[in-house]
C-alpha cells in the first residue's frame, strides 16, 4: 500500500494528493507504526548488518509473544473504552499458582490442561475486574490498579515467594518444542520455538471476534459511546465481562508461556511491564479514549517496542536509552495524530 502512495505522490505532488495521504493515514494510523518500524530496522541493518541474521530475528519473535498476548488483551479493553493495568498481576498469579499446583499435586497433567487452567483462571480474574467496573461504575483505571495490588498481594502473601526452578517435564517440553531449527555459520543450533505460533493464532481469533461477531461490534460501539450503545439495546454488562475476561484469559496464557520459555516460575516477574504493553498498543494507533485501533496495528506496535528494546544495543545505543526512545516515539505519534485530526 505504501507503494501506491509513493506512485501517486510522484505523479502529482499537489496539495490534493497530500490531503488524501493524510486521510489514508487518518484511516489507517498503523501506517505510521509500520513506517517507524521499517525505518528503525533499515537504520539498524545499515549500521550493523548482524541484525539481519536469523538469530536476532528469532530473538525478536520470541520476545514479542508474551508482550503481544498482553497487548491484544489491552487493545480489546481499550477498544471498549476501558483500560487495564492488572493483567500482569493476573498473569503472575495464574502462572505461579498453576505451576505450583502442577509441580506438587499433578506432575503428569497434560500440557493442554495446564494451558486450559491458565486461560480459565485468567478469565475468571479478568471477569472479576469486569464485574467491579460494571456493577459499581468505578473507573476501570482505579479498579485495575486496585486488583493489580490485590492479585499480586494474594500471590506473594498466600501462595509463595520462592522461585520454582524444577518445572514438570511437559512444561519444559512445551517451551523447547521447535518449530524451526537450524545451525548458523558458527555451528550453533538456533531454534524458533513452537509456542511463537500462539501469538498469530490469538491475533486471528481476536480479529475475528472484533470484526465478525456482534460482540465485537458491541465492543467498539461501547468504546464509541457507552450511553448511546446502551440506548440502542447493547448489553453493556456482557461487554464489560467479556472484554475483561478475554484480556484476563490472554494474560493467563501469556503467563504460562512466560514460565515455559524461561523454565522458571518467578512470582516477582511480569508485574511492572504493563506500561510497556500499553505503550505498544498506543503506538499501534489505538486511542486511549477508546473505540479505535486494529489488531494489525497492535501487533506492529508490539514489534516496534520489542525491536527498540532488543536491537538498539546492536547499534551502540545503551540499553538505558530504550525508555527515552519509546517515550519520544509515543509523544511524536500522539502529536502527529492530534495535528492530523485538527486539520481534518
Amino acid at each position: 500500500m505504501s507503494l501506491s502512495i509513493g506512485k501517486a505522490e510522484a505523479a502529482e505532488p499537489g496539495a490534493a494528493e497530500r490531503v488524501s495521504v493524510g486521510a489514508f493515514i487518518r484511516q489507517y494510523p498503523e501506517t505510521i507504526t509500520a513506517a517507524l518500524l521499517v525505518l528503525i530496522c533499515v537504520a539498524v541493518a545499515v549500521i550493523n548488518p548482524a541484525f539481519l541474521q536469523p538469530s536476532s530475528l528469532i530473538d525478536i519473535g520470541r520476545a514479542s509473544v508474551v508482550t503481544g498476548l498482553f497487548a491484544l488483551g489491552v487493545f480489546v479493553i481499550l477498544a471498549a473504552g476501558g483500560i487495564d493495568v492488572s493483567f500482569t498481576a493476573i498473569a503472575a498469579l495464574t502462572m505461579y499458582s498453576i505451576t505450583l499446583l502442577t509441580t506438587r499435586y499433578a506432575p503428569g497433567l497434560p500440557m493442554v490442561l495446564v494451558v486450559a487452567m491458565a486461560v480459565g483462571g485468567g478469565a475468571l480474574l479478568g471477569m472479576f475486574n469486569g464485574l467491579l467496573v460494571h456493577n459499581f461504575g468505578v473507573p476501570p483505571m482505579i479498579v485495575t490498579i486496585g486488583t493489580q495490588y490485590l492479585f499480586r498481594g494474594i500471590l506473594l502473601a498466600f501462595i509463595g515467594t520462592v522461585w520454582i526452578m524444577a518445572l514438570p517435564e511437559q512444561m519444559i517440553a512445551f517451551g523447547r518444542a521447535p518449530l524451526l531449527q537450524f545451525a548458523n555459520a558458527k555451528g550453533t543450533v538456533i531454534t524458533l520455538p513452537l509456542y511463537v505460533l500462539v501469538l498469530p493464532v490469538a491475533a486471528v481469533l481476536t480479529w475475528w471476534i472484533l470484526n465478525r461477531t456482534l460482540i465485537g461490534r458491541a465492543i467498539f460501539a461501547m468504546g464509541g459511546s457507552a450511553r448511546v450503545a446502551e440506548r440502542l439495546g447493547y448489553n453493556l454488562r456482557t461487554v464489560h465481562l467479556f472484554v475483561f475476561g478475554f484480556a484476563g484469559a490472554l494474560a493467563g496464557l501469556a503467563g504460562i508461556i512466560h514460565v515455559c520459555s524461561n523454565r522458571l516460575a518467578n512470582p516477582f516477574d511480569l508485574v511492572g511491564t504493563e506500561i510497556n504493553v500499553i505503550a505498544a498498543v498506543v503506538l499501534g494507533g489505538a486511542r486511549i479514549t477508546g473505540g479505535t485501533g486494529t489488531v494489525v496495528g497492535t501487533l506492529l506496535g508490539v514489534l516496534l517496542v520489542t525491536v527498540i528494546n532488543n536491537v538498539l544495543v546492536m547499534v551502540g545505543i545503551p540499553s538505558t536509552w530504550q525508555r527515552f526512545v519509546v517515550g519520544t516515539f509515543i509523544l511524536l505519534a500522539a502529536a502527529f495524530f492530534v495535528v492530523r485530526q485538527r486539520r481534518a
Binding site: 461477531t213 456482534l214 460482540i215 461490534r217 458491541a218 467498539f220 460501539a221 468504546g223 464509541g224 459511546s225 448511546v228 450503545a229 440502542l232 439495546g233 447493547y234 448489553n235 456482557t238 461487554v239 467479556f242 473505540g291 479505535t292
Partner: peptide, 25 residues
C-alpha cells in the same frame, strides 16, 4: 455511534433485535 461505519449504525440494530439482544452471534 461515532466510531462505527454508516452501515453498522444503520443496520446493526436489526441483527441485535433479531438475536433478542444476545451478543454471541
Amino acid at each position: 455511534i461515532p466510531n462505527l461505519s454508516v452501515a453498522e449504525n444503520v443496520a446493526l440494530s436489526e441483527q441485535l433485535v433479531h438475536g433478542e439482544g444476545r451478543l454471541a452471534r
